[in-house]
């Protein structure tokens, strides 16, 4: 049973942000401090005599803690593909950011046994003044490829991106589609034990998008451990071995991809009826 070794262990992971207003005076800056002091009498009047005023012109600046993600626990075993389902703003991206160490959690913990590669956003690290080729080297290094790996895969990356003709042109002359294709191509050629993939990375026109999804599928089936955040439920159902459903930052369900997707769709339909 060595293949069922856990590569990712997540226990009670949570991330909170401070929203609306400022927590500490020293976070406000002088402007806000003066403005808030000057507007205090008006706010006081508004609060006491004109109910409306406080919500429009001078909103109360008291913020509150908001959990973007809370009580998330799961494991991903070696070679397994875990699909993550949820609406926009449900906390899927926060989860990927936590697992890729971009931001730290507020509670709970995660353990990761292996090198992590992130395919989160296309074009990370690109610089407009540099050529396509220079940008591949730059972004590749930042994403975690060694110089030898980049040299090995350069031709493959260029070929996949379909920008061969312009590869020695500064990318500020590229169309946005070309930049996104190049960006996807670099990220897709990462080779780590664990891959975090966000489906929004699949970019470009319909044809290239299909190729992106195809590429993600081949990464997912190549024996790597994958966390896959999906929006296209059909794709997600096909790729994943198991899935979790996140709703408003909480884990709602864990199970077979088909069941999780069905539950997600049922809930979404129900919400539409309510509207």
């Amino acid at each position: 049973m060595s293949s069922s070794r856990a590569m990712i262990e997540v226990e009670g992971l949570g991330k909170s942000y401070w929203v609306g207003g400022e927590r500490l005076v020293d976070h406000m800056g002088m402007h806000a401090l003066i403005e808030s002091a000057l507007s205090a009498p008006v706010r006081w009047l508004g609060q006491n005599f004109m109910r409306r005023a406080q919500t429009s012109r001078f909103p109360m600046t008291e913020g509150h803690m908001k959990w973007a993600l809370r009580d998330i626990s799961f494991e991903v075993c070696e070679g397994e593909v875990l699909g993550v389902v949820g609406h926009n703003g449900a906390g899927k991206s926060v989860l990927l950011k936590l697992l890729s160490q971009i931001t730290r959690p507020s509670e709970g913990r995660a353990r990761i046994y292996g090198r992590v590669g992130s395919m989160l956003e296309a074009g990370t690290g690109f610089h407009g003044e540099l050529t396509g080729r220079e940008n591949i080297r730059l972004a590749g290094a930042i994403l975690g490829m060694s110089r030898a790996q980049i040299a090995d895969r350069l031709d493959e990356i260029v070929a996949f991106s379909e920008v061969e003709e312009y590869i020695d042109t500064p990318i500020k002359r590229y169309s946005s589609g070309m930049i996104m294709r190049l960006g996807f191509s670099v990220a897709a050629h990462l080779d780590t034990d664990i891959m975090l993939i966000d489906e929004v990375l699949a970019v470009g026109d319909q044809r290239f998008k299909r190729r992106c999804i195809e590429k993600m599928r081949s990464v997912a089936t190549s024996g790597k451990t994958v966390v896959f955040v999906g929006h296209d439920l059909q794709v997600l159902e096909r790729i994943s071995d198991r899935a979790i459903l996140i709703r408003q930052g909480r884990m709602q369900m864990e199970g077979a991809p088909g069941d999780v997707v069905a539950e997600h769709v049922r809930w979404a339909d129900g919400r539409q009826l309510d509207d």
Binding site: L13, L99, R104, P105, E107, G108, R111, I112, I142, S146
Partner: peptide, 28 residues
């Protein structure tokens, strides 16, 4: 490994070897 992901707490660790492992980014 494993990489531990937890909330920040206590005295920060310098962990200079982890900087050294990615030193090629400095160059690039």
């Amino acid at each position: 490994w494993p990489v531990e992901i937890r909330p920040p707490s206590g005295w920060p660790r310098l962990d200079l070897p982890s900087v050294w492992r990615r030193i090629d980014i400095v160059y690039i």
